[in-house]
Nucleic acid binder design. Structure first.
Lengths: 334, 334
DNA sequence: CGGATCTATGTTTGCGCTAACTTAGGCGTG
DNA sequence: CACGCCTAAGTTAGCGCAAACATAGATCCG
């Protein structure tokens, strides 16, 4: 920077002003400085700036497991949004599902230099009400509001209700559920909503079978479920497990949707092209991610919290996409 | 840090030594300092450290599109590996496929404070031989070696050859190809290897139909392809498009594998549970990611390049997984 | 047992930048 | 025309840490 200043015949402070844009600098000086920067290939040292300002221009994302499609889509939206606002994104993956692990990850990130943190809380923690360091603004991407921190997510209960209502509306006596893993928040919520909706409709609540999100687990679960001839409708907690359910049905000679209706969750891109095309609940994770960053950056840049508009809604409504995998139950059943 | 030093009754430098581990400090002083740090809740300011040392403890990942399954798996391996070595990871997503865009992203990242960069080069660039800033070590995750920079990837040609050989071995006269988008490197390579292998085997090379990796595009491509009754074997450039192919076959009343054999690429987790289970080429992206980080970190910590062992192999061999979607052609055809 | 050698610690300095203050000149107003 | 006020620039002083050098005491050896 000193070199640039000398070459341009100005003080270092003026260079700094030019670099940071909007200060009061004459057009003429600005041009001189810019020419000098160009000529010398000057690039600001961000560590020095961070040291002087205490800001880093980076936001951190904490998550369990990057490869869950769900999470990635949020992360991608976060990265895109952050980049658009001039922030970079640091990603941390947490091992265990304890609050301690999450807290450590957040600390690691703040130690590391971030101005704010987004936690994608996909796992059920040992402590139900996550309490995290508050050195920097923090936003949680999750599907419930029971946090101390601002939270954005999907209204997964609404999605599960829509799935159940759709199947009951077709005339099925009840709906069986292939649940996600017990340790997963979305899984818990989808399961709870399924159960509540059945009860509310006065139907029997069959015991759910839990999988682990993988197609294989959906397959295994369905083999058990379909041992009972009376099962006519299955709601799988995600599309991947639904694939397994379809496969099991095929192997057992149950025709979908003739003998069995199947509903998934997520609307992954292959859902319309399965055999048969899958009725499922579409999730708009991009919006969730976008809202998280926007809110976070607003908080970062307006630390008092004033001027940070409350978003219209913290929970995005999913949408039921009806395809060929659902139909009325076979004649003779209800 | 000064406070810690005062409380522990030592100099700041000694605190620094304790924080950075391995220097020569008496066990007694170390304990005193650690107690003081604990008591004061001291946490090093990473910006100051970076300013003093010129190192950041961060590596950057540049990619087109985070949501491609392929890339995510690499990124996840990179993040995990980096974390294990005490580095954090900054992610940048590039818009366009020009070398300029990539270079800008790398610059942005290095401006931003990274000690090294991994570029996941999934797109075909305008300039075939990527030339990037060399301010920091840089590793490319790609499937060819034609770079100025160290490169790790899959031997995708071997995968495509295996797919073709498998189908020809079953007795198919030739193999049709649903290719990935022209702008994609892996797509190009899979297509080229498919074509070469057919030629080498003295078979006709039917014109490939290009998709865009999505199940929908595979479906569309297959509809066109299967208009010709003579098509008995299709090699799709990824599993998602293979899903679309299976769907199209079902709609057209072609039985798989009775009338038509289908091979995919990637072995995504749903592949064994499609109807029928999909023969495909398994990719070990985790190993690719791991090798990238390991090599990069070695370079970062040993800048002279000495002592950085050349990896056993820069290209991981994929594996053909044979499942029920492939069989000999219907009787009467070849 | 004295000098060389080592070890644990302290001191000084500067990494590159920006916040906060200061200065110098230009302008308008009464 | 004198005064204050505004604007564009310069000056000063750290931000918190680690590298490099300095020092004092301990250890070793012939």
């Amino acid at each position: 920077m000193a070199d640039v200043a000398k070459l341009a015949g100005v003080s270092g402070q003026t260079v700094s002003r030019v670099v940071n844009g909007n200060d009061r600098v004459t057009a003429a000086t600005r041009l001189k400085v810019e020419a000098a920067m160009q000529q010398l290939g000057y690039r600001a040292n961000i560590a020095a700036r961070a040291l002087a300002t205490g800001r880093f221009g980076t936001i951190g994302v904490v998550m369990f497991n990057l490869s869950a499609v769900l999470n990635v889509r949020i992360v991608e939206a976060v990265v895109t949004g952050a980049q658009a606002r001039g922030y970079s994104v640091s990603v941390a993956v947490v091992d265990g599902p304890t609050e301690k692990d999450v807290r450590a990850a957040v600390r690691g990130l703040t130690d590391r230099a971030v101005d704010g943190v987004i936690v994608i809380e996909a796992r059920v923690l040992d402590t139900p009400h996550l309490r995290l360091p508050e050195e920097v603004p923090l936003v949680i991407a999750d599907s419930r509001a029971a946090h101390k921190h601002p939270t954005f997510g999907m209204d997964e209960a609404a999605g599960a209700r829509a799935a159940v209502d759709h199947l009951l509306g077709l005339g099925h006596a009840t709906v069986h559920h292939v649940a996600g893993p017990a340790g997963s928040n979305p899984a818990q919520r989808r399961r709870a909503a399924w159960q509540r909706q059945l009860k509310r409709s006065g139907r029997a609540v069959p015991p759910p079978v839990a999988g682990d999100w993988s197609p294989r687990s959906g397959y295994d679960a369905a083999l058990r479920l379909l041992a009972d001839d009376g099962v006519t409708a299955v709601f799988a907690a995600n599309d991947q497990m639904a694939v397994g359910v379809l496969r099991a049905a095929a192997e057992l000679g149950r025709r979908v949707p003739g003998d069995l209706s199947v509903v998934g969750f997520d609307d992954l891109d292959f859902a319309p092209f399965l055999t048969p095309p899958l009725t499922t609940v579409r999730q708009d994770l991009e919006t969730v991610g976008r809202r998280c960053v926007e809110h976070l950056i607003a908080r970062i840049e307006e630390p008092r919290g004033a001027g940070v508009p409350q978003p219209a809604s913290r929970f995005v409504r999913p949408e039921l996409i009806v395809r060929a995998s659902t139909a009325p139950p076979p004649a003779g059943r209800r």
